[in-house]
Design a protein around this nucleic acid. Structure first.
Lengths: 223, 223
DNA sequence: CATCAAATAATTTGATCATATTCTGGGGGC
DNA sequence: GCCCCCAGAATATGATCAAATTATTTGATG
């Protein structure tokens, strides 16, 4: 254990899991980078059992890769992988947005609007890390509102797969001309036009993911 | 470790994971049943560390459920859960079948045909366990042929969620009138008609999953 | 004499276990 | 019926063993 006098609610392995998850999600671990148990016990200040469990969970979710010999690393996406992720998100995200539009309350809509405002600030302020985090939380909130836990878990899991690459790509391009069709979507939701909201999200997803694809193809060509 | 003089290739936690996975997948653990570490260490003859890891992996895949207090059990599907699974498979399976049709070789087609024949034998022979296993392997093989590892993993993960319930449902209805649109699909694949193959699989999925839904609604009504 | 390659030694890392500790849930006493 | 105590199960640690990668040495060759 690290700090804590005794005010703890969550077990260590759960805390470690969440920390490691964010490390992957927001690109603090680069694609290809090795992930070792002992390295993380030091970095996160925990014993090896909780760290082992957290790593296993992330492997099961596709966030980390087990390399046959007993090594673990952050996966590097191939062009084919990206295509699959695009196909999957292109279906999942609009479907969830559609459901969300049918269910969302006005309070929740305000929530999303506020989040999107903060997102704008992060973009204009050039704060990459904040952009990545807020953008994720925006979509994540949408998944929750859709009230479809299994589909939401699937969609959420996809973020873990392209998170590390997203960070690399955005790091190369700065925070300008990042995709944000969120305004369209929020307007459509206000109008209770589920189809239009779904279309807006679909474009948002395609724009963002295609940018990742192109950028990754470039760096692959320069191998 | 259980037996073994030294001919081992795979680590214990991997073996335990696979065994536990099949236990869930083919309904040897009933929905709602509690899963304890110590129970499994005895049942599978392993130490607690490998068992813990296997359980965590299955939880991450949605095959087991963590109940907040440190208990773990096999999830019981709600009607909403089933609907989500239907929606997801209704999209994923046809998509993968479509890709598979474009890529499948004649040898692989023969493979599938043989598997489907064995499936028929299991049905007419009334062997429920063999049906469940062969049906799973048939679809699984299709996923592999589609050559889309991420989408295949998503589809594969869904089986873990309805596996336990499928066993219960089929146990109540016997092996007669089980869905099998596989013949249609194989014919369509022979003709390289991807659209028709995808439609056949879609019907296969819907038939099977709707049967689960209806059966579960009945038992819920009799609460 | 320098360079490269193969074999071997050393270090790092992962896998498993036994054990101590903490927490949850149930049963007996009030 | 409520509360406290206890049995049992889960969590977490560190030690030990095994495997794999890396570094080093050695010997042969140009």
């Amino acid at each position: 254990m690290v700090g804590g006098v005794g005010e703890n609610q969550l077990p260590t392995h759960e805390l470690i899991y969440r920390q490691l998850r964010e490390l992957v999600l927001f690109g603090d671990l680069a694609p290809g980078q090795a992930v070792t148990i002992q390295g993380l016990t030091e970095r996160l200040g925990a014993g090896m059992t909780p760290v082992r469990e957290a790593i296993r969970r992330l492997i099961a979710e596709g966030a980390l890769e087990f390399q046959g010999n007993r090594r673990v690393c952050v996966p590097q996406l191939s062009a084919d992988n990206i295509s699959e992720l695009i196909v999957a998100r292109q279906w999942l995200d609009p479907h969830l947005a559609l459901r969300a539009t049918e269910r969302i309350t006005l309070d929740e809509l305000d929530d999303l609007t506020v989040m999107d405002g903060e997102l704008d600030s992060a973009i204009s302020g050039g704060d990459l890390r904040a952009y990545l985090e807020l953008n994720y939380r925006f979509h994540r909130r949408l998944y929750e509102i859709a009230d479809a836990p299994i589909l939401a878990e699937l969609a959420d899991g996809l973020w873990l797969r392209f998170g590390p690459s997203l960070r690399v790509v955005c790091g190369r391009m700065g925070t300008q001309n990042l995709p944000d069709k969120h305004k369209d979507m929020l307007a459509a939701m206000h109008a209770r036009d589920a189809e239009r909201a779904a279309r807006a999200i679909r474009e948002d997803v395609i724009q963002g993911m295609e940018q990742v694809r192109r950028s990754l193809e470039l760096s692959a060509a320069a191998h």
